[in-house]
Amino acid sequence: MRICAEKRGETLYISVSGELDEHNAARARMEADKLAENCVGKTVRAVFDLGSISFMDSTGIGFLIGRYKRFARFGIPMYVTNLNTTTDKILQMSGIYTIIPKI
């Protein structure tokens, strides 16, 4: 599991790669929050790129909602992009797209 952040203009892209399950969720949370903290100034939107995720279960739902709540405190909307069939199926089922739209 690896998390990288890149700022392009006013958009903060956070890409998650590898396996996101309960075992590595705590590390994923910590790393994502650390990267986000350094970049919240001048950020207008945050986009989570899930294109390189090789495995994700319902842990991903909790992970994304947790990050959404943190960004919401700064008034920054959050989006997800590059979903594969399974991640899309899981997120669709959870109804998460109403607060974190897919782009």
Partner: peptide, 15 residues
């Protein structure tokens, strides 16, 4: 409190 979604059983059922 652990950012758990409560969707585990629903996913097993659906998949």
């Amino acid at each position: 409190e652990g950012e758990r979604s409560g969707m585990g059983f629903t996913i097993m059922q659906t998949f």
